[in-house]
């Protein structure tokens, strides 16, 4: 009975989202000069995967569709405990929206690791926050999927997995049982990640442990990837316009401040003392 083969797709996120520049013509993110880091919530996903590996054996493989500079944060995933890391990179993948990205990720996994048991994603990325990828990849692969996982148990002999997930907006835990393979996304406030071992990370760099795969290997159809495989377009960008506020400020004695505030709120009709 073999252990689990777990794929953890990860993303290079922009660390400081508020300092981001967009190209005024293409509306794409200007990536040059912007340092990239491992999306924080992907670390919770990697932790989730590593815990399963610790319990049931097998291997954890990280994979990212990223520019060539993505090698560095993939080395971090090895530093955290991943057994292997793959950088999926090609000019042809550029300009992809979530559909084209999910296509590239799904088909890469199918070609490179056809016998995987689980694909484990982070809940969302901190820079684009769509949470699309897990469900879109599930759709390309026609597999069951479940979001917001906090824990899982595996019955290796039956290849079954029992996943518990937390729905924050309902305050409910749900438990699902599926035959593997399935796709999971991990609740971002769960599975606090272990540290990244710098020694392992440096070893990964020195030994060139991150494997690079381009579209000469994958042979994905041009019309399905990058800009051409993306049904959505950014038609326009603009600065967010805030609502006009009264901006009345009170400085001084707290007693008077409290009275001033309650009087104004009563006048506004938002409290009824």
């Amino acid at each position: 009975m073999s252990g689990l083969t777990i794929i953890v797709p990860v993303k290079a996120a922009v660390p400081n989202v508020t300092a981001v520049r967009l190209d005024p013509v293409t509306h794409n993110l200007v990536r040059e000069g912007v340092p990239l880091m491992l999306n924080p919530y992907d670390r919770n996903a990697l932790e989730f995967a590593l815990r399963l590996k610790d319990r049931y054996g097998g291997k954890v493989i990280t994979l990212s569709m990223a520019p060539p500079s993505g090698k560095d944060f993939l080395e971090s995933t090895i530093g955290m405990g991943a057994d292997e890391a793959y950088l999926i990179t090609d000019r042809a993948f550029a300009g992809a929206d979530t559909l084209a990205t999910s296509y590239t990720v799904a088909r890469s996994i199918q070609r490179l690791f056809p016998n995987f048991d689980l694909i484990v994603f982070g809940e969302e990325t901190t820079d684009s926050t769509t949470a699309h990828m897990p469900a879109q990849v599930a759709s390309w692969l026609s597999l069951p999927f479940v979001y917001y996982a906090v824990d899982a148990e595996v019955k290796l002999e039956d290849r079954l997995i029992v996943v518990t997930r937390y729905l924050e907006d309902e305050g409910v835990y749900e438990t699902y049982e599926y035959k593997m393979p399935i796709i999971i996304s991990v609740y971002k406030n769960s599975n606090p990640p272990r540290d990244i071992s710098l020694v392992r990370k440096v070893e990964a760099k020195l030994n060139g442990l991150v494997k690079v795969v381009d579209n000469n290997t994958l042979k994905l159809e041009r019309e399905c990837i990058g800009l051409r495989g993306s049904p959505t377009i950014v038609a326009k960008i603009e600065d967010a316009k805030p609502i006009e506020r009264k901006k009345q400020i009170f400085k001084g004695d707290p007693k008077e401040a409290a009275k001033w505030l309650l009087d104004n709120l009563t006048k506004e009709g938002v409290i009824r003392p």
Partner: peptide, 23 residues
Amino acid sequence: ATKRGRELAPYVANSLRTGITAD
């Protein structure tokens, strides 16, 4: 875009081979 809605919508969109915009 409830927790369940965020889970369902991208699968539906992708299966129809169309785009989706979140939130």
